[in-house]
């Protein structure tokens, strides 16, 4: 039988599994830590500045989504469609960062991006 201390160690090991798993599976290469490079298809000015967008685009999209679905406010510039207008290729834009941080939003399951 495990002692109490032993079971705590086992528990912590199981808890830390994702950490070690990622460490091994990515080989801890330098590429995994390099900043992802975005390709901007239509360079120009975004509706908000880049730093703000990087931090808040998800909140903005959800806010605009609720407005559009529930209240019928269909202004384009801050919406998902607004994003697509300037960044038509998901692979070259959204995916770059989202793959990097391992966040999988559901937007593209239903909303057409590039086909």
């Amino acid at each position: 039988m495990l002692t109490r201390a032993g079971s705590v160690v086992v528990f912590l090991a199981v808890l830390a599994f994702p950490f070690f798993y990622n460490l091994v599976s990515t080989g801890y290469s330098s590429s995994a830590t390099a900043q992802p490079q975005l390709k901007i298809a239509k360079p120009g000015k975004c509706v908000e500045d880049t730093a703000w967008m990087r931090k808040n685009h998800m909140k903005m999209l959800i806010h605009v989504r609720e407005k559009a679905v529930r209240e019928g406010v269909r202004s384009v510039d801050h919406s998902f469609h607004g994003c697509i207008n300037c960044h038509p290729k998901r692979e070259e834009f959204c995916n770059r960062c989202h793959d990097y941080v391992g966040v999988k939003p559901e937007c593209w399951n239903c909303h057409h991006y590039d086909l």
Binding site: N109, C110, H111, H112, L115
Partner: peptide, 14 residues
Amino acid sequence: EPKPGDNRDVPVRM
């Protein structure tokens, strides 16, 4: 599965 020729004004579905 979304397919080419879908109306892009309307989302598909999960």
